[in-house]
Simulated scan of single mutants.
Amino acid sequence: MTHPDSRKRYAVVGNPIAHSRSPCIHEAFARQTGIALSYERILAPLDGFAATVREFFDQGGAGLNVTVPFKEQACALAGERLSDRARLAGAANTLWMRDGLLHGCNTDGVGLVDDLIRLGHSPAGRRVLLVGAGGAAKGVALPLIEAGCAALRIVNRTPARAAELGARLASQLPPMASRITAGGLDEAEGDWDIVVNASSSSLGGEPPALPAGIYADGALAYDMVYGSAETPFMRQAQAQGVRHRADGLGMLVGQAAASFAIWNGVAPETGPVLEALRRSLQDGA
Protein backbone atom coordinates (compact mmCIF):
# COMPACT_ATOMS: atom_id res chain seq x y z
CA MET A 1 0.00 0.00 0.00
CA THR A 2 1.35 3.44 -0.87
CA HIS A 3 0.48 6.81 0.57
CA PRO A 4 -1.84 8.70 -1.81
CA ASP A 5 0.10 11.97 -1.52
CA SER A 6 2.63 12.29 -4.38
CA ARG A 7 5.08 14.17 -2.17
CA LYS A 8 7.84 12.30 -0.37
CA ARG A 9 6.57 11.49 3.10
CA TYR A 10 8.71 11.96 6.19
CA ALA A 11 7.96 12.04 9.91
CA VAL A 12 9.38 12.20 13.40
CA VAL A 13 8.29 9.48 15.81
CA GLY A 14 8.44 9.65 19.59
CA ASN A 15 6.43 9.65 22.82
CA PRO A 16 5.70 12.43 23.66
CA ILE A 17 5.92 14.15 20.29
CA ALA A 18 3.59 17.20 20.21
CA HIS A 19 6.45 19.53 21.20
CA SER A 20 8.71 18.53 18.28
CA ARG A 21 9.88 21.35 16.01
CA SER A 22 11.10 18.92 13.34
CA PRO A 23 8.14 19.51 10.96
CA CYS A 24 8.74 23.26 10.68
CA ILE A 25 12.50 22.69 10.24
CA HIS A 26 12.15 20.14 7.45
CA GLU A 27 9.39 22.09 5.74
CA ALA A 28 11.72 25.12 5.69
CA PHE A 29 14.49 22.97 4.19
CA ALA A 30 12.04 21.72 1.55
CA ARG A 31 11.07 25.26 0.52
CA GLN A 32 14.73 26.22 0.37
CA THR A 33 15.74 23.30 -1.85
CA GLY A 34 12.59 23.02 -3.95
CA ILE A 35 11.88 19.46 -2.82
CA ALA A 36 8.23 18.47 -2.48
CA LEU A 37 7.65 16.64 0.79
CA SER A 38 5.32 16.26 3.72
CA TYR A 39 6.57 15.91 7.28
CA GLU A 40 4.43 14.92 10.26
CA ARG A 41 4.62 13.97 13.92
CA ILE A 42 3.79 10.38 14.86
CA LEU A 43 2.99 9.41 18.43
CA ALA A 44 4.04 5.79 18.83
CA PRO A 45 2.77 3.66 21.72
CA LEU A 46 5.55 2.93 24.19
CA ASP A 47 5.18 -0.77 23.36
CA GLY A 48 4.52 -0.28 19.65
CA PHE A 49 7.54 1.42 18.11
CA ALA A 50 8.54 -1.42 15.76
CA ALA A 51 4.99 -1.77 14.45
CA THR A 52 4.77 2.00 13.91
CA VAL A 53 7.99 2.02 11.89
CA ARG A 54 6.87 -0.97 9.81
CA GLU A 55 3.49 0.62 9.04
CA PHE A 56 5.11 3.94 8.06
CA PHE A 57 7.44 2.39 5.51
CA ASP A 58 4.83 -0.10 4.26
CA GLN A 59 2.69 2.92 3.38
CA GLY A 60 5.46 4.44 1.29
CA GLY A 61 7.26 6.56 3.87
CA ALA A 62 10.66 7.82 2.72
CA GLY A 63 12.39 8.56 6.03
CA LEU A 64 11.88 8.75 9.77
CA ASN A 65 13.47 10.82 12.49
CA VAL A 66 13.39 9.16 15.89
CA THR A 67 13.33 10.86 19.27
CA VAL A 68 12.87 9.94 22.92
CA PRO A 69 12.44 7.20 24.01
CA PHE A 70 12.93 5.13 20.86
CA LYS A 71 16.46 5.83 19.61
CA GLU A 72 17.90 2.61 21.07
CA GLN A 73 15.05 0.56 19.57
CA ALA A 74 15.66 2.25 16.21
CA CYS A 75 19.27 1.12 16.39
CA ALA A 76 18.20 -2.46 17.06
CA LEU A 77 15.72 -2.44 14.16
CA ALA A 78 18.41 -1.39 11.69
CA GLY A 79 20.66 -4.22 12.89
CA GLU A 80 23.94 -4.33 10.97
CA ARG A 81 22.92 -1.55 8.58
CA LEU A 82 24.11 1.26 10.85
CA SER A 83 26.60 4.09 10.50
CA ASP A 84 29.63 3.98 12.78
CA ARG A 85 28.16 6.90 14.73
CA ALA A 86 24.93 5.04 15.40
CA ARG A 87 26.78 1.85 16.28
CA LEU A 88 28.95 3.57 18.90
CA ALA A 89 26.00 5.49 20.33
CA GLY A 90 23.79 2.42 20.43
CA ALA A 91 21.09 4.78 19.15
CA ALA A 92 19.75 5.98 15.81
CA ASN A 93 17.77 9.13 15.12
CA THR A 94 17.48 8.73 11.33
CA LEU A 95 15.95 5.77 9.49
CA TRP A 96 15.42 5.07 5.80
CA MET A 97 14.85 2.15 3.44
CA ARG A 98 17.34 1.05 0.80
CA ASP A 99 16.76 -2.02 -1.38
CA GLY A 100 13.96 -3.04 0.93
CA LEU A 101 16.17 -2.98 4.05
CA LEU A 102 16.07 -0.55 6.98
CA HIS A 103 19.18 1.60 7.54
CA GLY A 104 20.04 3.87 10.45
CA CYS A 105 22.33 6.75 11.37
CA ASN A 106 22.84 9.10 14.30
CA THR A 107 23.20 12.70 13.12
CA ASP A 108 23.28 14.33 16.58
CA GLY A 109 27.07 14.58 16.68
CA VAL A 110 27.29 16.04 13.19
CA GLY A 111 24.73 18.64 14.24
CA LEU A 112 26.78 19.52 17.31
CA VAL A 113 30.11 19.80 15.49
CA ASP A 114 28.59 21.91 12.70
CA ASP A 115 27.07 24.25 15.29
CA LEU A 116 30.37 24.58 17.17
CA ILE A 117 32.03 25.55 13.88
CA ARG A 118 29.24 28.05 13.16
CA LEU A 119 29.87 29.61 16.57
CA GLY A 120 33.59 29.98 15.83
CA HIS A 121 34.63 27.23 18.23
CA SER A 122 35.67 24.36 15.98
CA PRO A 123 36.73 21.32 18.06
CA ALA A 124 39.85 20.88 15.91
CA GLY A 125 42.91 21.29 18.11
CA ARG A 126 40.77 22.19 21.15
CA ARG A 127 40.49 20.58 24.58
CA VAL A 128 36.89 19.40 24.99
CA LEU A 129 35.09 18.40 28.18
CA LEU A 130 31.96 16.30 27.60
CA VAL A 131 29.60 16.25 30.60
CA GLY A 132 27.37 13.17 30.70
CA ALA A 133 27.64 9.58 29.51
CA GLY A 134 24.06 8.74 28.53
CA GLY A 135 22.45 8.57 25.12
CA ALA A 136 23.07 12.24 24.28
CA ALA A 137 26.79 11.99 25.07
CA LYS A 138 27.13 8.71 23.18
CA GLY A 139 25.63 10.35 20.12
CA VAL A 140 28.24 13.12 19.96
CA ALA A 141 31.43 11.53 21.35
CA LEU A 142 32.69 9.96 18.11
CA PRO A 143 32.07 13.04 15.90
CA LEU A 144 33.86 15.23 18.47
CA ILE A 145 37.01 13.11 18.43
CA GLU A 146 36.80 12.69 14.64
CA ALA A 147 36.67 16.49 14.37
CA GLY A 148 40.26 16.53 15.63
CA CYS A 149 40.02 17.75 19.21
CA ALA A 150 43.35 17.67 21.02
CA ALA A 151 41.79 16.05 24.09
CA LEU A 152 38.36 14.72 25.00
CA ARG A 153 37.50 14.13 28.64
CA ILE A 154 34.18 12.49 29.49
CA VAL A 155 32.85 13.09 33.01
CA ASN A 156 29.68 11.80 34.56
CA ARG A 157 27.92 11.62 37.91
CA THR A 158 28.58 7.86 37.76
CA PRO A 159 32.28 7.59 36.83
CA ALA A 160 31.96 3.98 35.65
CA ARG A 161 29.58 5.03 32.88
CA ALA A 162 32.02 7.69 31.70
CA ALA A 163 34.82 5.11 31.72
CA GLU A 164 32.71 2.69 29.70
CA LEU A 165 31.96 5.29 27.03
CA GLY A 166 35.62 6.33 26.91
CA ALA A 167 36.71 2.72 26.44
CA ARG A 168 34.18 2.17 23.64
CA LEU A 169 35.33 5.33 21.90
CA ALA A 170 39.00 4.38 22.20
CA SER A 171 38.27 0.94 20.73
CA GLN A 172 36.63 2.60 17.71
CA LEU A 173 39.60 4.91 17.10
CA PRO A 174 42.79 3.29 18.49
CA PRO A 175 45.14 5.97 17.06
CA MET A 176 43.29 8.61 19.10
CA ALA A 177 42.92 6.58 22.30
CA SER A 178 45.58 8.62 24.09
CA ARG A 179 43.43 11.74 23.68
CA ILE A 180 40.45 10.22 25.51
CA THR A 181 40.08 10.21 29.32
CA ALA A 182 37.13 9.75 31.65
CA GLY A 183 36.10 10.25 35.28
CA GLY A 184 33.55 11.65 37.69
CA LEU A 185 32.15 15.17 37.67
CA ASP A 186 34.63 16.14 40.37
CA GLU A 187 37.45 15.03 38.06
CA ALA A 188 36.75 17.67 35.43
CA GLU A 189 39.86 19.58 36.40
CA GLY A 190 41.82 21.37 33.70
CA ASP A 191 41.49 24.31 31.36
CA TRP A 192 38.91 23.33 28.74
CA ASP A 193 38.32 25.24 25.52
CA ILE A 194 34.85 23.76 24.99
CA VAL A 195 32.59 22.35 27.70
CA VAL A 196 29.54 20.50 26.34
CA ASN A 197 26.71 19.64 28.71
CA ALA A 198 25.16 16.43 27.40
CA SER A 199 23.58 15.56 30.74
CA SER A 200 19.92 16.05 31.56
CA SER A 201 20.70 18.39 34.46
CA SER A 202 19.29 21.52 32.80
CA LEU A 203 15.96 19.78 32.24
CA GLY A 204 15.77 19.32 36.00
CA GLY A 205 16.47 23.00 36.63
CA GLU A 206 19.95 22.49 38.09
CA PRO A 207 23.44 22.72 36.55
CA PRO A 208 25.78 19.72 36.73
CA ALA A 209 27.96 19.61 39.86
CA LEU A 210 31.16 20.71 38.15
CA PRO A 211 34.11 22.22 39.99
CA ALA A 212 34.98 25.88 39.46
CA GLY A 213 37.94 26.94 37.36
CA ILE A 214 37.53 24.49 34.46
CA TYR A 215 37.18 27.05 31.66
CA ALA A 216 40.15 28.26 29.61
CA ASP A 217 40.33 31.87 28.45
CA GLY A 218 37.84 32.41 25.63
CA ALA A 219 36.14 29.07 26.28
CA LEU A 220 32.67 28.12 25.09
CA ALA A 221 30.02 26.65 27.40
CA TYR A 222 27.56 24.69 25.24
CA ASP A 223 24.35 23.12 26.53
CA MET A 224 22.64 20.55 24.29
CA VAL A 225 19.32 21.61 25.87
CA TYR A 226 17.66 24.71 24.39
CA GLY A 227 14.99 27.16 25.46
CA SER A 228 13.82 30.75 25.34
CA ALA A 229 16.25 31.74 28.13
CA GLU A 230 19.72 30.67 29.23
CA THR A 231 19.83 27.22 30.81
CA PRO A 232 21.05 26.53 34.37
CA PHE A 233 24.34 25.24 32.90
CA MET A 234 24.81 28.43 30.90
CA ARG A 235 24.07 30.57 33.96
CA GLN A 236 26.58 28.52 35.95
CA ALA A 237 29.21 29.26 33.31
CA GLN A 238 28.30 32.95 33.27
CA ALA A 239 28.85 33.11 37.03
CA GLN A 240 32.38 31.81 36.38
CA GLY A 241 33.05 34.59 33.89
CA VAL A 242 32.48 32.63 30.68
CA ARG A 243 31.42 35.07 27.95
CA HIS A 244 30.78 32.56 25.17
CA ARG A 245 27.68 30.49 25.89
CA ALA A 246 25.21 28.71 23.61
CA ASP A 247 22.28 26.36 23.84
CA GLY A 248 21.49 23.42 21.59
CA LEU A 249 19.03 24.99 19.15
CA GLY A 250 21.70 25.16 16.46
CA MET A 251 22.49 21.50 17.05
CA LEU A 252 18.80 20.66 16.60
CA VAL A 253 18.76 22.37 13.21
CA GLY A 254 22.13 20.88 12.28
CA GLN A 255 21.15 17.28 13.00
CA ALA A 256 17.94 17.82 11.00
CA ALA A 257 19.98 19.15 8.07
CA ALA A 258 22.19 16.05 8.18
CA SER A 259 19.11 13.80 8.12
CA PHE A 260 17.66 15.81 5.23
CA ALA A 261 20.91 15.37 3.29
CA ILE A 262 20.92 11.59 3.85
CA TRP A 263 17.37 11.32 2.53
CA ASN A 264 17.49 13.82 -0.33
CA GLY A 265 21.14 14.06 -1.39
CA VAL A 266 21.30 17.82 -0.84
CA ALA A 267 22.56 19.78 2.19
CA PRO A 268 20.27 22.70 3.10
CA GLU A 269 21.44 25.98 4.60
CA THR A 270 20.90 26.00 8.34
CA GLY A 271 21.42 29.71 9.08
CA PRO A 272 18.07 31.14 7.92
CA VAL A 273 16.14 28.27 9.50
CA LEU A 274 17.95 28.68 12.81
CA GLU A 275 17.26 32.42 12.86
CA ALA A 276 13.55 31.89 12.22
CA LEU A 277 13.33 29.18 14.86
CA ARG A 278 15.11 31.37 17.43
CA ARG A 279 12.66 34.21 16.80
CA SER A 280 9.75 31.83 17.17
CA LEU A 281 11.14 30.49 20.44
CA GLN A 282 11.67 33.95 21.86
CA ASP A 283 8.14 34.93 20.85
CA GLY A 284 6.79 31.94 22.73
CA ALA A 285 5.46 30.28 19.59
Rank of each mutant, 00 (worst) to 15 (best):
A258G: 05
A221G: 05
N156R: 09
S171D: 15
P232W: 10
R245V: 12
R245T: 04
I35Y: 00
H19T: 11
A163S: 13
L130D: 02
R243N: 07
L46V: 14
A256Y: 05
E230Q: 14
A160D: 14
V68I: 15
V68D: 00
V155D: 03
G218Q: 05
H26A: 08
A76Q: 12
P23D: 04
G61W: 11
G63M: 10
G109L: 00
P123V: 07
V66N: 10
P272Q: 05
S201T: 13
G109Q: 02
Q32Y: 06
G284W: 14
T2S: 15
A136D: 00
S22Q: 08
L165W: 06
G139H: 02
V253K: 06
A74V: 09
E269M: 10
L165M: 12
A177M: 06
A261R: 14
G248V: 02
E27P: 02
L281Y: 03
S199D: 06
P175C: 12
P232A: 11
N264K: 08
R126C: 03
I42S: 09
A188H: 09
D186T: 15
Y226P: 07
L281R: 06
P23S: 11
V225L: 13
M251R: 00
P232L: 12
Y222T: 03
D84I: 11
H121K: 14
A89W: 07
A276L: 09
G183H: 05
A285F: 12
I145M: 05
L220Y: 00
A137M: 11
G204Y: 07
A162T: 07
A86F: 01
M176V: 06
G227L: 10
D223Q: 09
T67K: 09
F29W: 04
E269T: 07
A78E: 11
N93I: 07
M251Q: 02
P159V: 06
D217F: 03
N65W: 02
L129M: 04
D247M: 05
A170V: 08
F233R: 03
G14L: 04
A170N: 04
A124G: 09
N156G: 05
V128S: 01
N15P: 04
R54G: 12
